[in-house]
Design a protein around this nucleic acid. Structure first.
Lengths: 101, 101
DNA sequence: TGAATATATGAACAAACGATCATATATAAG
DNA sequence: CTTATATATGATCGTTTGTTCATATATTCA
Protein backbone atom coordinates (compact mmCIF):
# COMPACT_ATOMS: atom_id res chain seq x y z
CA UNK A 1 0.00 0.00 0.00
CA UNK A 2 1.32 3.38 -1.01
CA UNK A 3 0.91 6.28 1.39
CA UNK A 4 -1.93 8.68 0.59
CA UNK A 5 0.39 11.63 0.01
CA UNK A 6 2.40 9.69 -2.53
CA UNK A 7 -0.70 8.39 -4.25
CA UNK A 8 -1.72 12.00 -4.79
CA UNK A 9 1.64 12.86 -6.28
CA UNK A 10 1.43 9.75 -8.40
CA UNK A 11 -1.98 10.60 -9.79
CA UNK A 12 -0.76 14.12 -10.59
CA UNK A 13 2.21 12.61 -12.34
CA UNK A 14 0.11 10.26 -14.46
CA UNK A 15 -2.52 12.87 -15.19
CA UNK A 16 0.20 15.02 -16.68
CA UNK A 17 0.98 12.29 -19.19
CA UNK A 18 -2.68 11.50 -19.66
CA UNK A 19 -3.27 14.24 -22.20
CA UNK A 20 -2.50 13.71 -25.86
CA UNK A 21 -1.06 17.15 -26.50
CA UNK A 22 1.31 16.98 -23.56
CA UNK A 23 2.35 13.46 -24.47
CA UNK A 24 3.01 14.58 -28.05
CA UNK A 25 5.19 17.38 -26.73
CA UNK A 26 7.12 15.04 -24.46
CA UNK A 27 7.58 12.57 -27.28
CA UNK A 28 8.93 15.35 -29.50
CA UNK A 29 11.36 16.45 -26.83
CA UNK A 30 12.72 12.92 -26.58
CA UNK A 31 14.18 13.57 -30.00
CA UNK A 32 15.72 16.98 -29.35
CA UNK A 33 15.33 20.14 -27.36
CA UNK A 34 13.08 22.54 -29.15
CA UNK A 35 11.82 26.10 -28.97
CA UNK A 36 8.14 26.90 -28.59
CA UNK A 37 7.23 27.87 -32.13
CA UNK A 38 8.95 24.79 -33.53
CA UNK A 39 6.95 22.55 -31.23
CA UNK A 40 3.80 24.37 -32.33
CA UNK A 41 4.75 23.86 -35.98
CA UNK A 42 5.50 20.17 -35.55
CA UNK A 43 2.22 19.54 -33.77
CA UNK A 44 0.28 21.91 -35.98
CA UNK A 45 -1.17 23.78 -33.03
CA UNK A 46 -1.26 27.41 -31.94
CA UNK A 47 1.65 28.94 -30.07
CA UNK A 48 -0.66 29.80 -27.22
CA UNK A 49 -1.99 26.29 -26.73
CA UNK A 50 1.54 24.91 -26.72
CA UNK A 51 2.81 27.59 -24.40
CA UNK A 52 0.09 26.87 -21.88
CA UNK A 53 0.86 23.17 -21.89
CA UNK A 54 4.58 23.88 -21.60
CA UNK A 55 3.93 25.93 -18.48
CA UNK A 56 1.96 23.01 -17.12
CA UNK A 57 4.79 20.60 -17.91
CA UNK A 58 7.29 22.95 -16.36
CA UNK A 59 5.34 23.27 -13.13
CA UNK A 60 5.16 19.51 -12.92
CA UNK A 61 8.92 19.30 -13.50
CA UNK A 62 8.61 17.33 -16.70
CA UNK A 63 10.63 19.84 -18.69
CA UNK A 64 13.24 22.47 -18.10
CA UNK A 65 14.03 25.54 -20.13
CA UNK A 66 16.95 27.52 -21.42
CA UNK A 67 16.42 30.95 -22.85
CA UNK A 68 18.65 31.94 -25.75
CA UNK A 69 17.91 35.33 -27.19
CA UNK A 70 14.25 35.56 -28.03
CA UNK A 71 13.76 31.85 -27.99
CA UNK A 72 13.08 29.52 -25.08
CA UNK A 73 14.28 25.99 -25.57
CA UNK A 74 12.48 23.20 -23.79
CA UNK A 75 13.94 19.81 -22.97
CA UNK A 76 12.97 16.83 -20.84
CA UNK A 77 13.81 17.48 -17.21
CA UNK A 78 15.48 14.14 -16.66
CA UNK A 79 15.84 10.61 -17.97
CA UNK A 80 12.97 9.23 -15.94
CA UNK A 81 10.45 10.96 -18.14
CA UNK A 82 11.57 9.20 -21.28
CA UNK A 83 11.81 5.95 -19.35
CA UNK A 84 8.22 6.24 -18.17
CA UNK A 85 6.99 6.98 -21.67
CA UNK A 86 8.78 3.99 -23.11
CA UNK A 87 7.61 1.69 -20.32
CA UNK A 88 4.01 2.68 -20.91
CA UNK A 89 4.59 2.12 -24.61
CA UNK A 90 5.92 -1.39 -24.00
CA UNK A 91 2.94 -2.07 -21.80
CA UNK A 92 0.28 -1.13 -24.31
CA UNK A 93 2.04 -3.07 -27.05
CA UNK A 94 2.13 -6.18 -24.89
CA UNK A 95 -1.43 -5.68 -23.71
CA UNK A 96 -2.56 -5.47 -27.30
CA UNK A 97 -0.94 -8.73 -28.35
CA UNK A 98 -1.88 -10.52 -25.20
CA UNK A 99 -5.44 -9.49 -24.30
CA UNK A 100 -5.77 -11.36 -20.99
CA UNK A 101 -2.63 -11.58 -18.85
CA UNK B 1 8.99 9.02 -32.11
CA UNK B 2 5.95 6.98 -31.20
CA UNK B 3 3.21 6.57 -33.78
CA UNK B 4 0.16 8.76 -33.34
CA UNK B 5 -2.20 5.86 -32.78
CA UNK B 6 -0.04 4.50 -29.99
CA UNK B 7 0.37 7.92 -28.43
CA UNK B 8 -3.41 8.07 -28.18
CA UNK B 9 -3.56 4.69 -26.51
CA UNK B 10 -0.77 5.76 -24.22
CA UNK B 11 -2.50 8.95 -23.12
CA UNK B 12 -5.68 6.96 -22.46
CA UNK B 13 -3.64 4.55 -20.41
CA UNK B 14 -2.02 7.26 -18.32
CA UNK B 15 -5.23 9.22 -17.93
CA UNK B 16 -6.77 6.15 -16.36
CA UNK B 17 -4.11 6.18 -13.67
CA UNK B 18 -4.24 9.95 -13.41
CA UNK B 19 -7.20 10.01 -11.08
CA UNK B 20 -6.77 9.62 -7.35
CA UNK B 21 -9.84 7.45 -6.80
CA UNK B 22 -8.90 5.03 -9.54
CA UNK B 23 -5.32 4.91 -8.35
CA UNK B 24 -6.50 4.22 -4.81
CA UNK B 25 -8.60 1.36 -6.10
CA UNK B 26 -5.71 -0.10 -8.08
CA UNK B 27 -3.41 0.23 -5.11
CA UNK B 28 -5.96 -1.61 -2.94
CA UNK B 29 -6.25 -4.40 -5.48
CA UNK B 30 -2.49 -4.88 -5.43
CA UNK B 31 -3.00 -6.25 -1.93
CA UNK B 32 -5.90 -8.57 -2.66
CA UNK B 33 -8.93 -9.08 -4.82
CA UNK B 34 -11.89 -7.35 -3.34
CA UNK B 35 -15.63 -6.98 -3.80
CA UNK B 36 -17.25 -3.65 -4.51
CA UNK B 37 -18.66 -2.77 -1.11
CA UNK B 38 -15.38 -3.62 0.59
CA UNK B 39 -13.51 -1.29 -1.75
CA UNK B 40 -16.10 1.38 -1.01
CA UNK B 41 -15.64 0.84 2.74
CA UNK B 42 -11.85 0.95 2.56
CA UNK B 43 -11.91 4.16 0.55
CA UNK B 44 -14.82 5.62 2.48
CA UNK B 45 -16.77 6.39 -0.68
CA UNK B 46 -20.23 5.52 -1.95
CA UNK B 47 -20.88 2.21 -3.67
CA UNK B 48 -22.07 4.06 -6.73
CA UNK B 49 -18.94 6.17 -7.14
CA UNK B 50 -16.76 3.09 -6.78
CA UNK B 51 -18.88 1.07 -9.14
CA UNK B 52 -18.67 3.72 -11.83
CA UNK B 53 -14.90 3.86 -11.56
CA UNK B 54 -14.68 0.08 -11.61
CA UNK B 55 -16.59 0.02 -14.88
CA UNK B 56 -14.12 2.54 -16.22
CA UNK B 57 -11.18 0.43 -15.08
CA UNK B 58 -12.76 -2.66 -16.57
CA UNK B 59 -13.30 -1.03 -19.96
CA UNK B 60 -9.68 0.03 -19.96
CA UNK B 61 -8.63 -3.53 -19.10
CA UNK B 62 -7.03 -2.57 -15.83
CA UNK B 63 -9.12 -5.00 -13.83
CA UNK B 64 -11.03 -8.20 -14.34
CA UNK B 65 -13.96 -9.58 -12.41
CA UNK B 66 -15.27 -12.78 -11.00
CA UNK B 67 -18.80 -13.03 -9.80
CA UNK B 68 -19.45 -15.23 -6.78
CA UNK B 69 -22.99 -15.24 -5.58
CA UNK B 70 -24.15 -11.70 -5.04
CA UNK B 71 -20.67 -10.33 -4.92
CA UNK B 72 -18.39 -9.30 -7.75
CA UNK B 73 -14.72 -9.58 -7.01
CA UNK B 74 -12.31 -7.28 -8.77
CA UNK B 75 -8.62 -7.93 -9.29
CA UNK B 76 -5.82 -6.41 -11.33
CA UNK B 77 -6.00 -7.60 -14.91
CA UNK B 78 -2.32 -8.44 -15.16
CA UNK B 79 1.10 -7.88 -13.63
CA UNK B 80 1.90 -4.87 -15.80
CA UNK B 81 -0.53 -2.71 -13.91
CA UNK B 82 1.21 -3.20 -10.58
CA UNK B 83 4.57 -2.77 -12.30
CA UNK B 84 3.53 0.57 -13.78
CA UNK B 85 2.27 1.81 -10.43
CA UNK B 86 5.48 0.87 -8.67
CA UNK B 87 7.64 2.38 -11.40
CA UNK B 88 5.80 5.66 -11.16
CA UNK B 89 6.19 5.46 -7.41
CA UNK B 90 9.94 4.97 -7.70
CA UNK B 91 10.06 7.87 -10.09
CA UNK B 92 8.35 10.39 -7.84
CA UNK B 93 10.42 9.33 -4.87
CA UNK B 94 13.63 9.85 -6.82
CA UNK B 95 12.40 13.10 -8.29
CA UNK B 96 11.66 14.37 -4.83
CA UNK B 97 15.12 13.66 -3.43
CA UNK B 98 16.88 14.84 -6.53
CA UNK B 99 15.10 17.99 -7.74
CA UNK B 100 17.06 18.53 -10.94
CA UNK B 101 18.21 15.41 -12.79
C1' DT C 1 -42.78 -15.69 -3.60
C1' DG C 2 -41.20 -11.63 -1.15
C1' DA C 3 -37.65 -9.16 1.40
C1' DA C 4 -32.88 -8.18 1.80
C1' DT C 5 -28.35 -7.58 -0.10
C1' DA C 6 -24.79 -6.57 -3.72
C1' DT C 7 -23.89 -4.37 -7.82
C1' DA C 8 -24.81 -1.65 -12.08
C1' DT C 9 -26.46 2.24 -14.52
C1' DG C 10 -28.67 6.56 -16.38
C1' DA C 11 -29.49 11.47 -15.59
C1' DA C 12 -27.99 15.61 -13.63
C1' DC C 13 -24.80 18.89 -11.94
C1' DA C 14 -20.66 21.14 -10.46
C1' DA C 15 -15.80 21.32 -11.07
C1' DA C 16 -11.73 20.71 -13.82
C1' DC C 17 -9.73 21.01 -18.22
C1' DG C 18 -7.95 22.49 -22.80
C1' DA C 19 -8.14 25.51 -26.65
C1' DT C 20 -8.79 30.21 -28.28
C1' DC C 21 -8.45 35.06 -28.40
C1' DA C 22 -6.59 39.22 -27.05
C1' DT C 23 -2.87 41.21 -25.11
C1' DA C 24 1.41 41.74 -22.33
C1' DT C 25 6.41 41.16 -21.95
C1' DA C 26 10.98 40.64 -23.57
C1' DT C 27 14.60 40.64 -26.89
C1' DA C 28 16.57 41.64 -31.37
C1' DA C 29 16.97 44.23 -35.58
C1' DG C 30 16.64 48.26 -38.29
C1' DC D 1 13.44 54.65 -30.63
C1' DT D 2 10.40 51.85 -33.39
C1' DT D 3 9.15 47.68 -35.37
C1' DA D 4 9.19 42.81 -35.65
C1' DT D 5 9.61 38.38 -33.50
C1' DA D 6 9.20 34.85 -29.74
C1' DT D 7 6.96 33.63 -25.73
C1' DA D 8 3.79 34.13 -21.71
C1' DT D 9 -0.55 34.91 -19.63
C1' DG D 10 -5.40 36.14 -18.25
C1' DA D 11 -10.25 35.70 -19.53
C1' DT D 12 -13.62 33.11 -21.75
C1' DC D 13 -16.07 29.16 -23.40
C1' DG D 14 -17.37 24.62 -24.68
C1' DT D 15 -16.24 19.85 -23.29
C1' DT D 16 -15.01 16.29 -20.33
C1' DT D 17 -14.95 14.30 -15.91
C1' DG D 18 -16.32 12.53 -11.26
C1' DT D 19 -19.73 12.30 -7.90
C1' DT D 20 -24.48 11.98 -6.40
C1' DC D 21 -29.14 10.50 -6.51
C1' DA D 22 -32.59 7.53 -7.92
C1' DT D 23 -33.49 3.31 -9.63
C1' DA D 24 -32.77 -1.14 -12.10
C1' DT D 25 -30.95 -5.86 -12.03
C1' DA D 26 -29.45 -10.03 -9.98
C1' DT D 27 -28.91 -13.29 -6.32
C1' DT D 28 -29.66 -15.18 -1.73
C1' DC D 29 -32.51 -16.35 2.07
C1' DA D 30 -36.66 -16.81 4.76
Amino acid sequence: MIEEENLEMLSDFYRTMGDLTRLRILDLLRRERMCVYKIAMELNMTQSAISHQLQYLRQMDFVRTEKIGKQVFYELADDHIEKMILLGYEHIKEAHNDPKN
